[in-house]
């Protein structure tokens, strides 16, 4: 009986807490790119991706995808960046990034493995989308896909290094029983 009550209290607490923290990650996803773009290093460091990856490592899969979904649209609404057709593409990338990281954490993989897996999955999605778009506008599709992934290499390294480091600090946000 006590265990059931604890479970219910835990579920309620998570239902209340997670949207607030998800909103914090969304806000960071909007503001970090401004900080990076002020010094013209935004494109290669993929600053919007880092908070979304952190959200994936810190929040449950039920909420993590929402961070990936909302961030590019809210950023586009508030700052005009990414310009309008881009949020469609970025939504797919960021949902995959957040959800894979969250599912990996739920499967009790180490944070570095979950982060690397999520970043890898995001790169695959990015490659597929850019390849398709490039063939639609008449560009060499394979080369464009590889270029789009490689141009973000510093950002990928930053995510793989910084993501797990920050994730340890956020672990208390997701106190899964038994962990």
């Amino acid at each position: 009986m006590t265990e059931e009550t604890n479970e219910a209290a835990f579920a309620h607490s998570q239902r209340v807490r997670e949207p607030i923290w998800a909103a914090a990650f969304v806000a960071l996803g909007v503001i970090l790119p401004i900080l990076f773009h002020l010094l013209s290093i935004g494109r290669v460091f993929l600053p919007m991706h880092l908070p979304v990856l952190l959200a994936g490592l810190a929040l449950s899969p039920r909420i993590a995808w929402a961070v990936g979904f909302i961030t590019p649209w809210l950023s586009s609404w508030l700052t005009g960046m990414p310009p309008m057709p881009m949020p469609v593409m970025m939504t797919a990338e960021l949902i995959v990034l957040a959800e894979v990281a969250s599912l990996a954490t739920a499967a009790r993989l180490p944070a570095w493995a979950g982060g690397a897996l999520a970043v890898g999955a995001r790169c695959v999605v990015s490659y597929v989308i850019v390849t398709y778009l490039a063939s639609w506008v008449g560009l060499p599709s394979g080369a464009s896909g590889i270029a789009s992934v490689l141009s973000g290499t510093p950002g990928i390294i930053l995510q793989i290094v910084a993501g797990p480091a920050f994730a340890a600090g956020f672990r208390r946000l997701r106190p899964v029983a038994g962990r």
């Binding site: 949207p19 909103a23 914090a24 969304v26 806000a27 909007v30 900080l35 909420i63 929402a66 809210l74």
Partner: peptide, 21 residues
């Protein structure tokens, strides 16, 4: 509703984060 809540709170928090930044 979850999406609406996160969007609404995120919009408010974005200005707080902007102020800090």
């Amino acid at each position: 509703n979850t999406l609406i809540t996160i969007t609404g709170l995120g919009y408010r928090l974005a200005f707080v984060a902007l102020d800090e930044a």
